[in-house]
Every structure is written in C-alpha cells, then in structure tokens.
Design a protein around this nucleic acid. Structure first.
Length: 575
RNA sequence: CGGGGUAUAGCGCAGUCUGGUAGCGCGCCAGCCUUGGGCGCUGGAAGUCGGGGGUUCGAAUCCCUCUGCCCCGACCA
C-alpha cells in the first residue's frame, strides 16, 4: 500500500475522554472513530487489523471442523419469548419495532436463533455432532459503555454452537474448541490463560474463559501456586479458615466514630488492624433484609453471593431499607441488635473471628470486642462470599492463590439441554426415539481482541503489533524521495520486492513529510518492521532496518533484503 | 436508575462569574524555506457557540426546558 493512496488518520493529541491506553492509541492511530457511546466506525487501518484477527479465528474454526453460517442481527421477539429471555435479559437487550409494530431485538447473542435453526434442520442423530459458527456484529446496550471497543455496545463476535445426542459427545467438542481457542490465541501472538469460570447469564454447566493477560484488565484471575489451576476470582474458592474461632477476650464496647465510615478509617482511628474489622453489606433476598458480613480487608463477591440459598436474585438494599431495618445510615451499620428481624450471612472468615469491630447501628458509632454467641446469635448462614486475596491458601492442597489481571476475550460453555429443552430441539436416535439435543456454545470477542492486543503490547511511542495482526508487516520509509531519484528508485524497488515476497508493505510516499513525522506515524500505528532508504545508506549499498521492538538500526545490504525481511516476518507469524 | 460534570472551527481548549465586533493551539489550504525524530516564516479557509423557548435595545454569556456525551454510585471503591 502506498501511503498517498491510503487514509492515514493519525493525531498528535490524546483524546480527552479516552481512559485506557488501547482506546487512546486506537483513536490516535486513527483505527476507530466514535459515533455514539460505545459505537465506533472502523477506519481502513483499524479494519485491516480486525480482519486479520477474524481470518485467524475463521481458519482455526474451520480447521476444528466447525461450519460457518451467518444469522440475522435482527431477531423476532417470539423466539426470545420461548426461552423466557425477552424479559430476563434485561436492559442490555435493544428492542426495536418495525412499521407494523412487530417487536424485534438487535441480537446480543444467538442461542435462540441457532436453536430454532437446529430444530428445523436437524432431524436425525446421523447429522450430529455438528458445530455452526458465525462472525457477526452484536449489540448489547451496556449500562456504561467504556474503554473504547473493549466494552462497546456494538462489537464483533465469533459465536459457535454445537449440537450433540449426549453429554459425552458435547464434552468431546468442548475439549476440541478449548484446543482450537488455544491455537487461535497462540497464533494471534498474545499472552493468554484459560481459566475456570462462572457460566453467568448464558447458563449451563462447565465453562472456561480465555483471558489476555494485561495489568489494565477488567477481570481478576486467580492462580494456584501448586498444580495448574486458574479461575476467575468470581469463582476462586477461599479455603475455610484452618484455625478454630478464638475465645472472646474483650468486653463489648461502643466507640465514637463520628466521621469514620469505612473499615479503613475505623481501624485507623482505633489503632487496630484492618483484619479485626467486619464490613456489612445490605441486600434484599428471598428472606427479606439480609446483612452480608466480610472481613474489613476483604471484598464481597457478588457472583458467589448469588449462589447462597435465598439470595439467587438478590438486590442491594436502599438507604431507606437500611434505616428501617437497622436504624442507622450506611457507614455505621452492623449485625448487632437490628431494629427489625434480619438474616445474617457471614463469610467463613468472619464466622471464625472473635473480638471484632462492626458498625453499632447508631450514626457516628461502631462497636468493638464483638463475639459470636456472646453478643449476637451465630450467623444464620456461613458461606464463601468473598474474593480470594493474593497469597492466601487455596483449597485442596493447591498451595496459595495469586492474582493477575486479564481481559476476557473468549468463553467456552457446556450449555447442556437448557435451550434445546425450552425450544424443543430434538432429533431421532438409533431407536427412532426423540431426544433433546445437548449444546455447547463458544464465543470470541473479535473486536475486543484488537484492544486487548494493544493493552498488552504498547510503549510510549505507540502500538507494538504482533506480526500476525499488524495492519502492515513492514514500512518502507524513503528519506528525501522528492529530491533524490536514486532514493525513489531504490524505495520503489524494495517496495515491489517486499510485496512480491508476500508481505503487507506500507510505502510512505508522502511528499515533503519530514523523517520525524514518518517515524512517529510508523511507531504510533505499530508496524512491526521498518526499513529506511536514504542517500547515506545507498552510498554503501545498504538500507537501515529496525524492528519496532528494538531501539537501534541495523544496516543491511539492499540486495537480498526483501528475502531476509520476509523470512524474519514469517518466524513471528508461525510461533 | 440516581448524583455530578460538560457541550464554542475537524481535534484539544479559553471566553460565560461581571451581557456589547467569537479567540488560542493542533490540524487543513496556498506560497517560501527546510529536509535523519511530529521544522520555520507568511497568508488563508473554516463556527446558526448542542436543540427549543424566554428575559433584554442587545445573549456563547442570564432564566426555563430538552438532548447528547463523560465521570461517579451502598463500609462491594
């Protein structure tokens, strides 16, 4: 590609409302342009990257035996009523009406459509197993879209759905997809990790997420020091405290904490360790007002909480409800002497504590020296309801937990019969008996991968693309092409040779652009290799080569450079 | 959903409090100059000041209202 024939849209200034590096760089490099909250145009440059990701995903899905199809982005309400998700999916579902006032949604996922397709197309066990996939634009009306294409409302996703007569077959395909995903992320040149995950709203049994590792990741991933286990912190189990609860040693005492609302503030005021405090989290569950207790330095895990009996569909309590049941405003609440009957759910750690500090249920006061059994009844329920923390013991002799950040870019699920059941997707087996199919579902966030790759690969000058998804493999930068016929000829020749060698080449043939500007653009848009053609170098029959990841030039003979560069790029393309 | 902020040239911003000719930087166009890290100089184009309504002789500026966008949201931060 000649730059004069391309639309390069780089900008110097960092956009004000971009709050993650990938979004800043994608905007500065001119890969995307925002048109509305969470909705972006992909420019020619950005699209080149997106398409490369897409191509690798497609190749590996095909290789794994999946069949590509394309489903509609607009889906009728009726299908979603069949699974009950028209109501259940919530505000994320963008609902629309046509001119006849019929209702549709813009598809946030395609379980309904594919299951409808399958029940119509698949009649016999002989047609199974089969795995259909598509690469398609989805829309989820996120409450707060942010981080550019990382959490956009409109995004590109690869979604696959497999159909089976039994669970064993479903599990075989699950493993097949797990391996295909491993190949995909390896080929993309990204550092990633597969982790055990919560199936979430999609539902089903077994599930793994694939995370691109990056410090800025929205998800926390927990790894065990022994064995090879990794899980989303949403799922990672905190081992039950080994030591039994100590006997009470302090008397109950109400202390004034006029402005201290957080555990940190209270602990500092009282000169106590944060581990001696307990925080209270007020929710409304099936039993009504419920107080969830975790240690001051711990965080409530809402996914785990929703698995506690009676809290399946809990919501946060309002300030009015907190005042009504506890008689105090948030910041000073606790399980002691509530104004009304409440349910108390204690984290395992809290259940094993003694002489702890909680809010006194009186504005401006906390209570210390609190002990289970003596000062208040034993908790109604003890459960694992918090996030694990760095360094704490992992269950089952797997050593200790450590935490890393990741960006979820893939997810594989064993759906079982959830959708096939509600939509009546059946095939006849060998005995002519109707059997509900088992399903698997496998997603990859194609557009999110582009952002994730940047989060993982950038420096102060810009993006550092892995070769496999770089918009161009190599940039040819001629210095003084306007003035020097010799430079022009050499650059054109090199451009032709590199292109013929099968590389995606960008020739910066812009008139009158100074070297500094050319270098800055090449580095910003992250082209992994560059070659500078100048009078100085040609004098010695050489060009200057530089890897985007290197800090110095290497002189290379003009003759044979294209072949050398092509080989260099290829070593990175097939890791 | 609730709270806060913000909306002025393609982009980033000042001007609004205290009403009186709409500005700066980047970018863009033309010319000169320069040519190894986003050069320099000169000239130029470009804005119904988010929409609607009101107050006023006069509104980017004051009042009402709508909309977009951004940020935050319980001792989970």
């Amino acid at each position: 590609m000649r730059l004069t024939k391309f639309h390069l849209a780089t900008v110097k200034e960092t956009p004000a409302d971009a709050d993650v590096v990938s979004q800043q760089l994608m905007l500065r490099a001119g890969m995307i342009r925002k048109i509305a909250a969470g909705i972006y145009t992909w420019t020619p440059l950005g699209l080149r990257v997106l398409r490369k990701v897409e191509a690798i995903v497609r190749e590996e899905m095909d290789r794994a035996g999946a069949l590509e199809l394309l489903m509609p982005s607009i889906q009728p309400r009726e299908l979603w009523e069949e699974t009950g998700r028209w109501a259940k999916f919530g505000g994320q579902l963008l609902k629309i009406r046509d001119r006849k006032d019929a209702e549709f949604c813009y598809g946030p996922t395609h379980e309904e459509v594919i299951t409808d397709f399958a029940r119509n197309e698949l009649r016999s066990y002989k047609q199974l197993p089969v795995n259909f996939y598509q690469i398609q634009t989805k829309f989820r009306d996120e409450i707060r879209p942010r981080f550019g294409v990382m959490r956009a409302r409109e995004f590109l996703m690869k979604d696959a759905y497999s159909f089976h007569v039994d669970t064993a077959c479903m599990q075989r395909e699950y493993r097949n997809m797990y391996e295909a995903y491993t190949r995909i992320f390896t080929r993309l040149g990204l550092k990633f990790r597969a982790v055990a995950a919560d199936p979430g709203a999609i539902g089903g049994t077994g599930s793994h997420e694939f995370h691109v590792l990056a410090d800025s990741g929205e998800d926390a991933i927990a790894f065990t020091s022994e064995g090879d286990y990794a899980a989303n912190v949403e799922l990672a189990e905190a081992a039950a405290p080994a030591a039994p609860r100590a006997a009470p040693s302090e008397a109950l005492e109400q202390v004034a904490t006029p402005t201290q609302k957080t555990c940190e503030e209270v602990a500092a005021l009282l000169g106590l360790a944060l581990e001696r405090t307990v925080k209270s989290f007020a929710v409304i569950g099936e039993q009504g007002f419920t107080l969830v207790l975790v240690r001051g330095d711990h965080m409530v895990n809402e996914i785990k909480l929703a698995k506690v009996a009676g809290l399946g569909e809990y919501r946060l309590a309002s300030e009015a409800e907190i005042a009504e049941h506890l008689g105090a405003p948030p910041g000073f609440i606790g399980p002691l002497k509530p104004a009304k009957k409440i349910t108390v759910v204690a984290d395992r750690t809290v259940a094993a504590m003694s002489d702890f500090v909680v809010g006194a249920n009186a504005a401006g006061f906390h209570t210390r020296g609190v002990n289970w059994g003596r000062d208040l009844p034993e908790p109604d329920l003890v459960a694992d309801v918090r996030n694990v923390v760095e360094g704490e013991p992992a269950p089952g002799g797997m050593g200790t937990w450590s935490i890393a950040r990741g960006i979820e870019v893939g997810h594989v699920f064993q759906l079982g019969q959830k959708y096939a059941q509600s939509m009546g997707a059946q095939v006849l087996d060998e005995n002519g008996k109707a059997r509900t199919m088992y399903m698997g579902c496998y997603g990859i966030g194609v557009s999110r991968i582009v952002a994730a790759a940047i989060e993982q690969n950038h420096d102060a000058s810009g993006i550092l693309w892995p070769e496999a998804i770089a918009p161009f493999h190599i940039a040819v930068l001629p210095l003084g092409m306007d003035r020097s016929e010799r430079v022009r000829e050499a650059a054109e020749k090199l451009y032709g040779e590199l292109t013929a060698a099968g590389l995606d080449v960008l020739l910066d043939d812009r008139k009158g652009v100074r070297p500094g500007a050319m270098f800055a653009d090449q580095e910003l848009i992250g082209i992994p290799h560059r070659v500078v053609v100048s009078e100085r170098g040609l004098e010695a029959g050489q060009v200057e080569y530089r890897s985007r990841r290197a800090s110095a030039n290497e002189m290379k003979p003009c003759a044979g450079f294209a072949a050398w560069a092509a080989a260099e790029v290829r070593t990175h393309l097939s890791p």
